[in-house]
């Protein structure tokens, strides 16, 4: 469960990149975060994961404040950043072992998880190679594997589908569904409306730092008809693709 209470952030004085944001992502829910480029999605995600400090408001992960109880809050987060170029000099397996150590995953669980995840994403055969030799999609896959290794309760993914081939994208969506069904919480940003439509229990739309819509995809479609500005925004998002 993720609670975002009245959170604001400005990089430059006077210009709020995220403005008084309120959101609650319940357990068992897949939440899609939509918005045009520069809307504040990554900024929000960075605050949820503890990378950025919010100027105002607080964020709770399973009831734990990310600022005050950072370590225990972070233990329950699996995070996939928007760029997958991480520690490229390490071999795939070295990276996964490292993540397993950081999140204290016991060896036997680690073995089955690594095999399961990497075989599903078809990078098992590449684990003994340095990640700098991986393609963009393969890097995305290994970062996802690293984040999900400890099976954290809350998944937070910043545009996780970019660069994935259709099969991997499908598999990831399946995993997200399964994870939510098990009573966990999935929060991800995306530009792909079909993904949001088919996958998400609820979506939120952010524009210029302000949350302008929260609800189910059906609600959004209904609202689109009688709200001109939202329709423009919708176009803006779809044009990004």
């Amino acid at each position: 469960m993720i609670n975002i209470n009245n959170v604001s952030k400005s990089y430059v004085k006077g210009k709020k990149s995220v403005d008084a944001l309120n959101l609650e992502i319940k357990d068992g829910e897949i939440f899609g975060f939509l918005g045009p480029n520069g809307a504040g999605k990554t900024t929000t995600i960075k605050m949820i994961t503890g990378i950025l400090n919010s100027d105002e408001g607080n964020i709770l992960i399973d009831g734990k404040d990310i600022k005050k109880e950072g370590i225990s809050a972070k233990k329950n987060i699996g995070f996939v950043p928007d760029t997958p170029d991480i520690f490229l000099k390490l071999k795939g397996i070295e990276y996964l072992n490292f993540m397993g150590d950081i999140y204290e995953v016991p060896t036997d669980i680690r073995k089955t998880r690594i095999e399961e995840l990497t075989k599903k994403f078809e990078i098992f055969d590449n684990l003994n190679e340095e990640m700098q030799s991986y393609s963009h999609g393969m890097r995305q896959k290994i970062v996802i594997c690293g984040a999900l290794l400890s099976n954290p309760k809350n998944w937070i993914l910043d545009e996780p589908m970019t660069g994935l081939d259709p099969k991997a994208s499908f598999d990831l969506k399946e995993m997200m569904r399964k994870h939510a069904k098990e009573g966990n919480c999935v929060f991800f940003s995306t530009h792909v409306l079909e993904v949001a439509e088919k996958l998400c229990d609820r979506v939120g739309i952010i524009n210029k730092g302000k949350l302008i819509f929260v609800g189910t995809f059906e609600d959004m479609k209904a609202k689109l008809k009688d709200n001109g500005s939202l329709e423009e925004l919708f176009l803006e998002i779809t044009q990004d693709e």
């Binding site: 960075k46 994961t49 503890g50 990378i51 950072g70 370590i71 225990s72 809050a73 972070k74 233990k75 987060i77 995070f79 950043p81 991480i86 520690f87 950081i102 999140y103």
Partner: peptide
């Protein structure tokens, strides 16, 4: 930023 999102102080 890796340093900031992992659960290690």
């Amino acid at each position: 930023i890796f340093m900031k999102y992992i659960p290690v102080s």
